[in-house]
Every structure is written in C-alpha cells, then in structure tokens.
Amino acid sequence: MLLIPCPYCGPRPELEFAYGGEGGIARPADPAALDDDAWGAFLYHRSNPRGMHVERWRHVHGCGRFFNARRDTVTDLFACSWKVGEAAP
C-alpha cells in the first residue's frame, strides 16, 4: 500500500485516495476548435512512462482535494506532490 504525500494533509495510506490518471492534461478551452485527431489524443493518448510520471490523486477520504504528484512507476516511490494551480517543483 502506497504512502501518498497529500500536500494538504501530509503522508496518508493509499486507501484514503483515488487515483486520477496522468496529470497535466488540460481540457482544451475550445474543444470544438480541435480536429478529431487532436480531440482523440486529448481523450485517450497517455505517456504511460516507465519512470517518472506526473499524476493526479484525490484525497477522497480525507480533505477531498485533487493534487498532483510525481512518482517513479518502477519503484512506486513519490518524488514530490503539489497543489492544483501550483507550479511543479
């Protein structure tokens, strides 16, 4: 069970969180302006890296807030986490 660093509450066990998928994929401001390729890429293409991954978590059974984190997908260790709207450290 991962120990996840909530930037609001501190480290908490994985059971308190919901995974939110890859981070940094902003919803286009004007989806209608995108062609099908670009919209499909937004919906479905993911970097899925072997190594450092920027991802979203929600402390759903805690403060309820979404935040970003960087985790190594090989060791599952977190490098850092930050609040929505903050710059990545």
Binding site: G40, R46, N48, P49, R50
Partner: peptide
C-alpha cells in the same frame, strides 16, 4: 505492458496505460 515505452521510440503516443 511495455508497449508505450517501445512505441515512444518510434515517436508514437499510444492510448494505453500499464
């Protein structure tokens, strides 16, 4: 499970998660 990693070598992003 490593498909995204290999396809990235050819510059192709995949609709996959591992």
């Amino acid at each position: 499970g490593n498909t995204s990693v290999v396809m990235a070598m050819a510059g192709v992003r995949m609709p996959l998660e591992s």
